[in-house]
Amino acid sequence: METKNKIRVLIAKPGLDGHDKGAKIVALALRDAGMEVIYSGLHQTLDQIIQTATQEAVDVIGLSIMSGAHLPICEKLMTMMKEKGLEDICLTVGGVIPHQDIPRLKQIGVSAVFPGGTSFEDIVFGMNKLFE
């Protein structure tokens, strides 16, 4: 009987950019690391992300953003998460994220940032670290 709590991750791509290869590959890497990944695909509205995260009772939301809109998206999502009482969920972001924006993202409340070029090991390590 398995009693170990599995990490459940929602991988979502908010907004209009249409490149989901990165998100899919990260989803696979997380699966291979033993996590349960809910893959919700392209063009998610923030409402959809909140609804999915609630219904699926995830531990982590992983956003993949390459449109450059990471700051306003994360800010808005964080506010919505607080409104819905989802503060327990860790928000993480990957994609095209300039390094100088990382401190600002952390300030907003993002738990971890994995900009393009981060290795799978580092992502998995970073995810696991959130739950130690």
Binding site: K6, Q48, T52
Partner: peptide, 25 residues
């Protein structure tokens, strides 16, 4: 690995904001 990709939801997106529909993978 014990991991999983849960992707069925992907095809049920249009109900995501309907409060009388609950989808759980």
């Amino acid at each position: 690995s014990g991991g999983a990709i849960l992707g069925d939801r992907l095809r049920m997106q249009r109900h995501a904001s309907d409060e009388k529909v609950f989808i759980r993978s």
